[in-house]
């Protein structure tokens, strides 16, 4: 008696094949100059690859909701760390005063 029935071997090989194809695809797309899209494309493919590894190699596809919650929680916290930090970095170079006020204030000094 086994605790969990083992997965079919071909699913692992199919997963491997898919991951290899995606690796080649991401490499090829990276060599093209996609401009602003290049990072989203690269990361999008990475997310798909990661999802394949998590779902099939790590068996999350057939795991309990709790495991899924744990993963969601860690990703949520990572997102919080990144995005909340960016509330600072993305607004840091803005002046507190709107630009129009600056323009109005500057000639007055002359």
């Amino acid at each position: 008696m086994s605790l969990h029935p083992p997965a079919k071997a071909w699913t692992y090989w199919a997963n491997f094949l898919a991951l290899c194809v995606l690796t080649v695809v991401t490499w090829l797309t990276a060599r093209m100059d996609l401009g602003a899209l290049s990072t989203p494309v690269a990361l999008g493919i990475a997310v798909i690859k990661a999802a394949l590894v998590v779902l099939f190699f790590m068996h999350v596809w057939e795991s309990t909701p709790l495991t899924k919650l744990v993963i969601a929680m860690s990703l949520f916290m990572l997102t919080v760390l990144l995005t909340f930090m960016f509330t600072d970095y993305m607004t840091r170079n803005y002046d507190v005063l709107p630009p129009a006020d600056h323009a109005a204030a500057a000639p007055g000094k002359h």
Binding site: T26, A30, D33, L34, T39, A42, L43, I45, A46
Partner: peptide, 12 residues
Amino acid sequence: FLFPLLYLLGAH
């Protein structure tokens, strides 16, 4: 994730 972030960032 390291692969695209480090290697592919400037591949073009």
